[in-house]
Amino acid sequence: MLSDVARRSPAPADMPPLPQFAHIKRAWDDAQQSVVARLLPGEYYVTRHPELLYTVLGSCVSACVRDTRLGIGGMNHFMLPLDGSGGASSWASVDLSAATRYGNVAMEYLINDLMKLGCQRANLEFKVVGGGKVLNMEMDVGGRNAAFVREYLRTEGFPIAAADLGDRFARKLFYDPRSGKVRVKRLNPTANLAVFERERQVSLPAPQAAGSVELF
């Protein structure tokens, strides 16, 4: 017979997040039989605990990354600012767009937090998801995000272990940082507009609003 302790589902309170992620919504999920951390657009999360990371992606992308030796990993959910600049296509050109600089920072936050936990660059495994062309408009916002994340990882010398990018779908994503397993459910296109609107409203601020300089 199981003891009371063994029967009890692990609660997020038993697995406190790193201090910088106290705002991330986490709860026990019966269907997943796991604690699940739910990421909103613009958020990222890194964990050492046995838990799943979840998000819903429209035109945004998520990079799922873990140290294959330590089993520590994380995920982000970001989009390049909708400022109409060149984005990923201008990465290698002199016309360096604000959007590209911004996407770079979204990736750097995630990677830096993993490095602080002792992860090694050489052991990082990347899987990338999202970037759907979820709206019928000329500008392919999702394609731009997908191209950015591919180009970023290529420049950094990180191979992509798996990718589910582009196409016309929004996606539900579960990531298990311990095993590296990614599960993607492609959503019915009727959900596309709602997902896109949520991403657009709560996504990262425009680049000119962020960043600062300080003279000592």
């Binding site: 600089r101 680049p207 962020a210 300089v213 000592f216």
Partner: peptide, 23 residues
């Protein structure tokens, strides 16, 4: 810590060409 170690400035990412010019 940066100031006491002798740093002259700190630029937060993401930065802009304008902030580079200024600082």
């Amino acid at each position: 810590r940066a100031t006491s170690a002798g740093a002259r400035f700190l630029i937060s990412k993401p930065f802009t060409p304008e902030s580079f010019k200024e600082i």
